[in-house]
Design a protein around this nucleic acid. Structure first.
Lengths: 233, 233
DNA sequence: GTGGTCTTATGGTCTGACCATTAATGCTAA
DNA sequence: TTAGCATTAATGGTCAGACCATAAGACCAC
C-alpha cells in the first residue's frame, strides 16, 4: 500500500550499500574502491556525502584511506572497533578491577578451550615464545612477548569473539595503565614466578588438558593480583 | 626545542580535542556542541572537516546529530560501538557456536559475580520480571522479558565491561538469528523448563550464593544447547 | 486556548575549486 | 644499460560559499 520511506541520511544509505557489498564478498579484503568522484557520480550524490560515508566506514575499521592512492577495503586483521571503548569505559567510571576481572574470566576459559583445540602449529609458536621469554632480559620486550603469548592462546580457541574481546581488553588495559602511570612491579623473583606459571599453562595446552590449563591460567592471574596489591589504582 | 609535528588529518585532530573535552568532563552528557559553522571558525577549518569529525564521533557513539537542533554529547547509555562487530564477525566466518560459547562463559561468571553484589533494588526488578515472564503467553513478549532479565543480571555485576560485552553479544545474536532465519523452538514444555531454570538463577541470586547461581545459569545454557541441537545453523 | 504561519537557527547536501601525496612515466646523465 | 631525477596524472584532503530541510519559538487568527 504505502511505500517505505527512504530512511535517514545519505551517508547511512551509502554505508549500508557498501557494507552489503562487503558482506556479499563483492568487495574483498584489500580491494580498491572506485575514486570518490566516481562514487559520487554513481550514487548521484555529492562528494561530501561520499566522504562522510567513507569517514564513518573508516572509523568502523572497514575501510582504509590512503592519500594519493585510494580507499581500500580493510584487511580486518585486528578490529579497531574498540578505540571508542576506552572513552566509554572511562566515562562510565570503569575501574582497573573491572578489567582484570573480565580478563581473568575470559583467559581462564580461553585456556580451557585452547587446550581442546590447539594445533601443533600454534603449540610450536607458543613454545618458541616461551623460549624467547626466558631468554629476554629486557622489560619492554618481555611485556611484548607476554602479550603475544596471551594472544596466541586466544587465537587457539578458534573463537573469533574471544579473540576480539581479549584484544579489546588488552588495548584498554594498555591505555589505562599508560594514563594511570601504573607500573606493575616485576622484580627478578616475580619475573621468575611468572615464567614458571606461563610454562605451566603451555605445558597443560601441550597435554591438551583443559582443566590443568584453566588452573594454571587462574594461578597466573592470582599472581598478577598479588603483584599489584596495595597499588594505588 | 622542536615543536611536535601536527599529526594526521584534520578530522582526527578535532576528534581528539573533543574526546579530551568529554573525558575531562568539560562536555557532559546531553550538552549541546556549538553550531558547526561556529566550530569551523573556532578551529579555523572548513565546515566539511568539522562535519567529517562529527560524523566519526557519531559512529563512535559519542555524539548525536539532530537536524534543526544541533549536535549533542550522547548519553552513553548503551554503546553503539558494536554495530561494526556484526560485519567483522561474519567476514571472519564467525559461527553461532562461537556466540553461544562466549555467551555461556560470560553469563555463568556474571551470575556468580551478580550473586555477590546484587542490590535489593535489582533483586526486586528481577523478581518482577520473573513474574511477568510467567504470566506472559506471547512469544515475542517472552523473548523481550528474557533479554531484560539477562541484561539486569549483567548490570548487577557492576562491571561495565561485562555489561557492554554481553550487550554486544546479544545484538550480534539477534542479527545472526534474523539473518539465518533460525528460530529456537520453544514449545510449551520447554517454555516451562526455561522458566523453572530462570527461577533457579534468580533464587540463587536472592540467596547471594555464587556457586548456585553459576550452576543454574550453566543449566540454562545446556538447556538452550539442547533445544537447538540438530538445527541447521 | 488551539491551530496555523512566519522567522530563525541549525544540520544536511551540493558545487566547484585548489592543495598534497602517490605512483607511474619518461627523460637524463653516468 | 641503468640509476636517479623531473614531470605528469590520479586521487584523497581541504576549502569556500551556496541552498535545502527540519525543528523550535514567536506571532497571529480563530
Amino acid at each position: 500500500m504505502f511505500h517505505e520511506v527512504i530512511p535517514g541520511k545519505i551517508y547511512q544509505q551509502i554505508n549500508k550499500q557498501i557494507q552489503d557489498l562487503i558482506l556479499s564478498e563483492v568487495l574483498k579484503k584489500g580491494d580498491k574502491l572506485p575514486p570518490e568522484r566516481q562514487l559520487a557520480e554513481a550514487f548521484n550524490v555529492s562528494r561530501a556525502s561520499i566522504r562522510e560515508s567513507i569517514r564513518s566506514l573508516e572509523i568502523m575499521g572497514l575501510i582504509e584511506s590512503r592519500p594519493g592512492e585510494g580507499n581500500f577495503i580493510s584487511n580486518f586483521e585486528r578490529p579497531t572497533i574498540f578505540e571508542p571503548l576506552t572513552i566509554m569505559f572511562k566515562i562510565n567510571n570503569g575501574t582497573f578491577r573491572d578489567i582484570l576481572e573480565i580478563r581473568m574470566i575470559l583467559e581462564v576459559e580461553a585456556a580451557g578451550l585452547a587446550a581442546e583445540r590447539i594445533t601443533d602449529d600454534h603449540l610450536k609458536k607458543l613454545n618458541d615464545l616461551m623460549q624467547a621469554l626466558e631468554n629476554s632480559d629486557d622489560e619492554a620486550e618481555s611485556v611484548e612477548i607476554d602479550k603475544k603469548i596471551h594472544y596466541l592462546i586466544a587465537e587457539a580457541t578458534g573463537n573469533y569473539l574471544i579473540i576480539v574481546m581479549l584484544d579489546a581488553i588488552s588495548s584498554l588495559m594498555t591505555s589505562f595503565i599508560a594514563n594511570a602511570r601504573l607500573i606493575i612491579a616485576k622484580n627478578i623473583s616475580e619475573q621468575g614466578r611468572l615464567i614458571r606459571i606461563h610454562k605451566d599453562v603451555v605445558k597443560a595446552l601441550g597435554q591438551k588438558n583443559p582443566r590443568l590449563a584453566q588452573d594454571a591460567m587462574r594461578r597466573h592471574f592470582y599472581s598478577v593480583y598479588e603483584s599489584i596489591e596495595g597499588e594505588d589504582i
